[in-house]
């Protein structure tokens, strides 16, 4: 799949700037206290505009995954962060067959399909 994504979105520019510095963030709402992903200017839960990016640990576990073997194999996954939100991502591994639901993973920052750096995950010991 060849697609380019324009990352000149004023709403998410700071998220991607942090990714360039190897930092993962989620949206946090000061109105209701909930975190959300992907990050938005207006909280999708309470509609407060008192939102900000919140740096997260980058640790989580695999909610689910699929191995796509057509061409160079890759692992599409949903990872649930310790902070409670799930994000679409890739698991970066030489052994896709070892991925499982509930597997502990940690964030890594690598070039995505559009050629820009994106948060992905690798298997982790803890």
């Amino acid at each position: 799949m060849k697609m380019t994504v324009q990352r000149d979105n004023p709403e998410t520019r700071e998220f991607w700037a942090r990714v360039e510095r190897d930092e993962l963030s989620v949206g946090h709402c000061n109105g209701c206290g909930e975190v959300h992903y992907y990050p938005r200017a207006i909280c999708p839960f309470c509609f407060s505009d008192d939102t900000a990016l919140k740096a997260v640990s980058g640790r989580g576990e695999v909610l689910s995954y699929s191995i796509i073997s057509r061409g160079e194999p890759y692992v599409l996954a949903l990872v649930t962060l310790e902070e409670g939100v799930s994000m679409l991502t890739n698991i970066v591994t030489d052994d896709p067959g070892a991925v499982f639901c509930g597997m502990k993973v940690a964030v890594t920052f690598q070039d995505g399909a559009d050629g820009a750096k994106a948060p992905m995950f690798v298997p982790s010991a803890n």
């Binding site: 799949m1 697609m3 994504v5 324009q6 990352r7 979105n9 998410t12 991607w16 992903y37 992907y38 909610l63 689910s64 995954y65 699929s66 796509i68 890759y74 599409l76 996954a77 949903l78 994000m87 679409l88 991502t89 890739n90 995505g112 399909a113 559009d114 820009a116 994106a118 992905m120």
Partner: peptide, 17 residues
């Protein structure tokens, strides 16, 4: 889109998850 396309989310793989 910017939070999905980097990960090559083919439709069948979404259902597969």
């Amino acid at each position: 889109v910017e939070f999905e396309v980097p990960y090559k989310p083919m439709l069948a793989a979404m259902y597969a998850m």
